[in-house]
Design a protein around this nucleic acid. Structure first.
Lengths: 194, 194
DNA sequence: AGAACATGCAACACCAATGATGCAACTCCT
DNA sequence: AGGAGTTGCATCATTGGTGTTGCATGTTCT
């Protein structure tokens, strides 16, 4: 009980971080994982987890809150309001991917788990919506583009990119934006193939 | 116990169908739903479910097997091997969407749950891969397209289309294929915006 | 009517996860 | 050195879902 323990014990907050990160690693692989497994991954006894988080819900709630915070920061840091749409799209994508690579499970629970996290999440989503509207008005998206569908596709692409895992956030962002705007086909493919 | 019961009791197989369909409806909303909830949705006692399916795993296994069957048929019916790539892409998409709209949860378990269903699933997936290769060679996809990424995007788009739920399978298929090939942006968007 | 079969219902055993608690050992701080 | 705080460990109660069984009822087929 001395090796890993001593390293963590220096600070209480550090233990909390360890648990949150361990929970993310375990739950992203198996959402039905046990508190025991989470504790083990964190190098901590199960009781310790329960001392820090009253219940399982409290734990995932904290994870969601933490991830939502980082998510909001990631979008904010890209200044989507004051940057040209294409640049904003790249920046937001890359930043969000960075968060999602580390907090995929937690982010997936941001809507259902936390009470206030849902509010922040909704705010960010609205910011994203504005970005898409601006993109369409700037001629980046087709004038007749269905923004709801476009956003849906955008989220899905980010998700897939995060899952595929190969490459850094910037490379993945490039791929996401490219696919979002141009698809994977040739430009004339549909109307006049070949 | 007379109304719904009598209607089901006419045939034993019909009861099994009712359970499978009820399970799909319930589990697609909440994958952690109880056998009790499934039974209730099926208008059946929980014991009846257990008489038909030895365990919970057996139930989802049967669901996966059933959905996989329909999935394979859906792809087969589109004759992707003997049809021009663009047509095949449309047909496969529409047919698969029809299945996915009704058996989304079951299909998501086809890989992990059933023993042989995974084999069939793999076969279908390979067929899909061939279709994409043919599409690239026909000039439908860009020559430098990453087929793994393209397939990933394709599946994700089908998934999103099935989730969004508005419109029939044909309209959704059109949207999926269009987005897959052209994206949601203007053609010149990336290199020379506006 | 009688046989065969399926269902609902109630009850039961079982198990795994959750959450709580007391105690001893350890670290850190002053 | 002494106090405050934290952890591991062992233990316990509780809970909720799972799976099984016996029995009475009801249906279908012949």
């Amino acid at each position: 009980m001395t090796e890993a323990t001593r390293a963590l014990r220096s600070d209480a907050e550090r233990t909390v971080r360890q648990i949150l990160e361990a929970a993310e690693r375990v739950l992203s692989r198996n959402p039905a994982a046990t508190m025991e497994q989470i504790a083990e991954e964190a190098g901590v006894a199960r009781t310790t987890v329960h001392r820090r988080f009253a219940s399982r819900d409290a734990l995932v709630g904290a994870m969601a809150a933490w991830a939502t915070r980082r998510f909001a920061d990631a979008v904010e840091a890209a200044n989507p309001e004051t940057t040209p749409p294409l640049v904003a799209l790249y920046q937001v994508t890359a930043n969000v991917l960075r968060v999602k690579l580390d907090w995929g499970f937690a982010m997936s629970r941001a809507l259902t788990a936390a009470p206030e996290a849902a509010r922040v999440h909704a705010e960010v989503e609205e910011k994203c919506e504005r970005m898409f509207r601006a993109a369409r008005e700037a001629g980046l998206l087709r004038p007749d583009a269905d923004l709801a569908w476009a956003r849906r596709v955008y989220y899905a692409l980010i998700h897939e990119a995060a899952q595929s895992g190969d490459g850094d956030a910037d490379a993945l962002a490039t791929r996401v934006v490219d696919t979002l705007l141009r698809g994977v086909g040739t430009a004339q493919g549909l109307t006049a193939p070949r």
